[in-house]
Design a protein around this nucleic acid. Structure first.
Lengths: 240, 240
DNA sequence: TTACTCATGTAAGTAGTTACATGATTCC
DNA sequence: GGAATCATGTAACTACTTACATGAGTAA
């Protein structure tokens, strides 16, 4: 694992699950389960991960020396134990390194948009359904993000409270402000998607008016290809 | 592979690379290489894939019966061959099925946004750099998409020309319009990101004015965790 | 006693990445 | 003769998903 090298080798990967976990632990030590729960109503909105991914990742962080774990007894009878994770100095340093690192964003991979590119293969009704589903989904997201902004502004999440309690008072404004900025950004994103879907619905209407029968596309080009062009010799691939 | 079942089993996955390839083949038969090239300046904007992924995927599509391949001689001496792929009836049907299928969008996983959530760990300068990089990246994307919309509107890409040549004239408007709608949507998206980054830069400025020294965050909570619950004494910040 | 939450995982499989491998053909 | 590009891949690895497994503690 490239990011494990460090200390001389300095070949480091950027991976958000790791750093999201480190960031959560900045607010104080937690067990894997607690961490997973906190994850679910904070970072999970921007970086989704299943619990089954979080546990092994914590083990990896531990063996990389970025977190340290202790077995803590559970329950009154103390028959069972749980593992409490805490940041190490190296973990805190890695978190700060990651914050300052400029990452190349991953290439786009958006299924809804590739589908929309080929909507002419479906009927007007089907195209409309796609846009409607897109709108409904992003309306949900928008509402969820709005509720979250409200919680953050009222400093009403347990995680935020823990973090603020551990931070110097003059830092409180920044801590809240960056988080609010992120979720407001997500609200704007959602609104952009909703507007796109609505323009899509209008487009479907205009196209259906212009050509009521639509493009039923009953005549796909099957294999073997019919001779469309004479002299199939110099198939021009290049330049666009 | 669930999507391979079909014909009775009917357990089908939604995966865009497959369907993007099928969609490209609607415009006519192509070799793997030609397909990969066309991919690069069309679908790749919305669904990125490397060539090393495309070739095996074509083989899988072939063994699933969605495309059919023939060996075609290459060059004047005809010593080598290439494989030309074409849609089968099943492939065309699967493409249409996919268009009408409503997919659940994947959960969000956005590294830039999780990083922005924790920008208080860096300096104002570092925070600004993050937002500037974000803006620069999306300005590039916006420009690229604008150029692509222009090409589409002028019907100037080889792929679009081939597709239009193979489609009934009354369908031409819809074919172009959906593609333009997608790329205009991507332009709006990019603009939303640019605006977010700019508001971010303003925010950094306001926070720096309010607290010129910033939150240097020299005091992370390390392992073992101090007793948080009661008597939160700052003296007991952990040393490992 | 039952059901739920706490708590921690493993196994098998898919999708994608990076890096490498190989040889033919065409154009200058 | 050499460079670019045509053409088709393989191998090793990472991240993530789905589904399953197990058992303790707690409240009705």
């Amino acid at each position: 694992m490239a990011w494990l090298v460090g200390a001389g080798g300095e070949e480091v990967d950027a991976l958000s699950l790791r750093h999201a976990l480190l960031a959560l632990l900045e607010a104080g030590s937690m067990t894997g389960y607690e961490l997973a729960k906190q994850f679910d109503n904070s970072v999970d909105y921007v970086w989704h991960a299943r619990h089954s991914q979080i546990y092994p990742e914590l083990r990896r962080l531990e063996s990389a020396g970025l977190v340290r774990a202790t077995d803590v007894p559970r329950g009154s009878k103390e028959l069972a134990t749980k593992r409490a994770y805490g940041l190490t100095r190296e973990g805190a340093a890695e978190l700060r390194r990651w914050i300052t690192e400029i990452e190349a964003p991953p290439a786009l991979r958006d299924s809804a948009y590739v589908k929309a590119t080929y909507l002419e293969y479906g009927s007007a009704r089907e195209a409309r359904e796609q846009f409607r589903a897109h709108r409904a989904y992003h309306e949900q997201l928008r509402d969820r993000f709005e509720r979250h902004v409200d919680l953050l502004e009222r400093r009403a999440t347990t995680l935020l409270r823990r973090r603020l309690a551990a931070a110097p008072p003059q830092a409180h404004e920044a801590i809240v402000a960056y988080k609010v900025h992120v979720y407001r950004g997500l609200i704007e994103r959602a609104k952009t998607e909703i507007a796109w879907a609505e323009r899509g619905i209008e487009l479907v209407g205009r196209l259906a008016d212009a050509d009521p029968d639509g493009f039923s596309a009953t005549d796909p080009i099957l294999w073997p290809a019919p001779e469309r062009e004479h002299s199939r010799t110099s198939s021009s691939v290049g330049r666009d």
